[in-house]
Amino acid sequence: MTSTLQPYSETPNETYTFSSRPRPVPPRLKYKEHSISQNEGQGIYGNIMYDRRVVRGNTYAQHVLPGPDLVEIQRQQEARKRAIAKNRAKEQFRSRTPDALQGRKHTDMQTELYLEELSDLTEDTSVGCQTDAFLDKPITPLFIPAKSGKDVATQIEKSELFDFDVEAQPVLEVLVGKIMEQALLEVLEEEELHALRTQQRAFQDLHDAEMVEVERLEEQERRRHEEKDCRIKQKRVVLEKEKETAEKIAARVFAQHYLADLLPSVYTTLKDHGYFSDLVQRDIETGFLPWLVAEVNSALEKRQIALTVFDILIQNVTNWRRETFQIVNPE
């Protein structure tokens, strides 16, 4: 249901009511966009189901409470004010004990006819009683169930069953024989075990002696091997030192023989190549002659420059005289 929302106005003493003018329901169109275009400009439409002031849920179980009566509320307020004023008047007219003088204080006291002691302790009394001693319980008689059935007996003569001496003798012989045989086997087994233990102890002693001898021989061999390695190392060091000494001696002798012929030839070659020359001559060749050559070259360059300048001057003068002569004698 759609309707036009009216402006809401509510007075403090009125409940909310909703009303709308009756109007015909427009036909429902097929398409939503056409309905929107037709409803444009007709006002604001709303659904009361989306209004916050509408109660949701089932309304059958709700009790509609009547609005408060202003007259009753005013009457209750006036009655409350009168009760407060009455209580205040009673408090004012009630007689009170005057205040105590300076240095004194009020104390509660009993004004009854019979005085009694007032205390916070509770009175209590101990009371006891004696009970009779318990008697010993009598012995419970043995329970014997009632007999049921019938007693029956039979008679057996001595020769009807068997003769114990005759019948038990083979069994005893077998048992005694088996026991003796088992005893002999156990004795033989013990003797064999004793012999085996004796042989095992002898073998163990022999084995221990052999192991001790083996350890002694291994230790002796180890010491010999260590001594042999030590001797070999020492001999190897001695041989290396002897070899090194021999090589040094041979190298020294070879160097002496080689240098004996090498030094004169080296000195001769160096002298031939000019490494051993006169100091004055070497100074002249390395210091004076280069300076002299440089000075001569500088003087020659200056002379050449002067000659060039002189030639240029002569040429310029000649050209000027020729031009002057041509001007004077054009023919």
Rank of each mutant, 00 (worst) to 15 (best):
K228G: 04
G274E: 00
E242G: 04
A251P: 11
R222L: 10
K233F: 07
E218Q: 03
E226F: 06
K271A: 08
E240K: 11
L289S: 15
Q256R: 03
S265N: 06
A246K: 15
C230Q: 14
V296Q: 08
W291C: 11
S277Q: 11
V296P: 01
I232V: 08
V296S: 06
V253L: 15
R252W: 12
L262A: 10
F288E: 04
A255Y: 07
A250G: 07
Y275I: 03
K228A: 09
R282G: 01
R224D: 01
K241F: 00
R252H: 08
T269Q: 04
E240T: 09
G287D: 12
R282V: 09
D261F: 01
D261I: 09
A255D: 06
Y275L: 08
R231S: 09
E240S: 06
S277A: 11
E219H: 00
S265G: 06
A250L: 11
A250Y: 04
V266N: 06
T286G: 08
E218A: 02
V237G: 12
A251S: 12
F276I: 14
V296Y: 03
H257P: 08
Q234D: 09
K271W: 01
R224L: 03
T269V: 05
L292G: 09
V280A: 13
K235F: 03
L289P: 13
I284F: 12
Y267E: 02
Y275V: 05
Q234Y: 07
D283S: 13
K271T: 10
R231W: 03
G287R: 13
D283A: 13
V253F: 14
I249C: 11
T245Q: 10
A255L: 11
E226T: 11
K235A: 11
N297F: 03
R231V: 04
E240P: 02
D261C: 05
E240G: 05
K233D: 13
E226H: 12
Q281C: 03
F276N: 07
G287E: 09
V253A: 15
L259G: 00
E226I: 03
V293G: 02
T286F: 13
I284C: 06
F254A: 15
D272A: 10
A260N: 08
T269L: 08
S277N: 11
R282W: 09
Q234A: 12
E285C: 04
K243F: 06
A250W: 05
I249W: 11
E219K: 02
F276A: 04
L279G: 01
K228Q: 11
K241H: 04
K248Q: 01
L262D: 04
A255I: 05
H257Q: 14
E221Y: 07
K228P: 00
D261N: 09
L263C: 02
T245F: 00
S277E: 10
D278Y: 07
H273C: 08
V280H: 14
V237A: 15
A251V: 09
Q281L: 06
V253I: 15
C230K: 14
Q220T: 04
H225M: 02
T245V: 02
W291R: 12
H225C: 00
A294I: 05
F276D: 01
K271I: 00
L270I: 01
V253W: 14
E247Q: 15
R224F: 04
A260R: 07
D229L: 13
G274P: 00
E218F: 00
R231L: 10
R224H: 01
E226N: 10
H225V: 00
T286H: 12
R282H: 10
E295V: 13
V238E: 12
Q220R: 04
V237Y: 14
E242M: 10
R223L: 03
P264W: 03
